Computed example of a mutant assay.
Amino acid sequence: MQVNNVRLEAVGVKFEQFPETDYPEVAFAGRSNVGKSSLINALINRKALARTSGQPGKTQTINFYNIEEQLYFVDLPGYGYAKVARASREQWGKMIEYYLNRRVPLGMIVLLVDIRHTPNENDRIMMDYIRTAGFEPLVVATKADKLNRSQIIKHLKIIKQALALHSIDQIIPFSSMTKQGAEAIWDEIDQWLAYVQEQNEEKEIDVDEE
């Protein structure tokens, strides 16, 4: 998709604060400071529209970015930062789980992990949340510029095993510094959008035939 028009449209913690349009939604989930906002900025060709912070755990809301009046990128609160109060962590966890299970326009989930580290218990819990909600996420391994090519393959295999994936082909290495992986991520999103459009057209045909 060629992105020229994008804006932060809604920020909320409960459903009545979320957009009421039926644009399909791509949600981005990951540990605090894994690079969700940096990935979103890279995908929409902006330097700082998505809110980035050097302080893990700062994003406490679900942020909806309107992309070309066609879809939303949804930035979920980062999880797993120990210094955030336990009550806040539990609240975010409930909010994320509720969104994943109840949000009808949600159709694709991108799970970010740091390519340098083995996915931890919080990552595995998030993967369970996502699968329980009926999705198989696109896994993006951030900070790929920190490793050389041989290391990348090794670490992709570690991530594959930790998250019980079928193949390392389900993981896209990404770097916010070099934009490595951005095109491949957009390819996945575009394929999904084409599928959504095809499904919607079939529903319209069925309605017309009735």
Rank of each mutant, 00 (worst) to 15 (best):
N41W: 13
V113A: 07
R149V: 04
V6P: 02
L39V: 13
R131N: 10
A50N: 10
K143E: 09
A182K: 05
G78P: 14
A42G: 11
S176G: 15
H117L: 08
A50G: 10
S88K: 15
S37Q: 05
E68T: 01
L71E: 07
S88H: 13
V113R: 01
G57T: 05
R124A: 08
A10H: 13
D145Y: 11
M1W: 01
I62S: 11
G93D: 10
I153Y: 13
F28H: 12
L71Y: 15
M95Y: 00
P24I: 00
L39P: 14
L112Q: 01
G30C: 11
V84F: 09
K14H: 15
K83T: 14
K47A: 02
F174Q: 04
R149S: 06
V139A: 07
I40Y: 07
Q70D: 15
I152S: 03
G134Y: 06
R51C: 07
V84T: 04
S175E: 03
E121I: 05
D123R: 03
E9W: 01
R31Y: 13
V3T: 01
Q60L: 06
E25D: 13
E121T: 00
N63F: 01
S53L: 09
N41C: 09
V13D: 14
M126A: 06
Q91I: 02
A50T: 07
E69Y: 11
A42Q: 13
R7A: 03
P119C: 01
L193W: 01
T178K: 00
F73I: 09
R149K: 15
L39S: 13
A27L: 08
I44R: 13
M1N: 12
L111D: 02
T52C: 04
V207T: 06
K157L: 08
G93W: 00
E9F: 08
T59A: 02
I189Q: 01
V26E: 02
S150N: 14
Q2R: 02
K14Q: 09
I109A: 06
Y65V: 01
W92C: 06
S176A: 15
L100T: 02
I152D: 07
N148W: 00
V140G: 13
E183A: 08
I62L: 15
L111C: 06
V74Y: 00
A48C: 00
R102K: 13
G107Y: 00
R116V: 06
N41Q: 12
L112K: 04
F18D: 12
T142M: 14
L100P: 09
E16H: 07
R116M: 00
Q151N: 02
N5T: 12
I62D: 02
Y195W: 03
Q17P: 11
L111E: 08
Y129H: 11
V113D: 05
A184F: 00
S32Y: 03
A42Y: 07
V3C: 03
D208C: 05
N101Y: 10
A164Y: 11
V6R: 01
I152Q: 14
T61P: 06
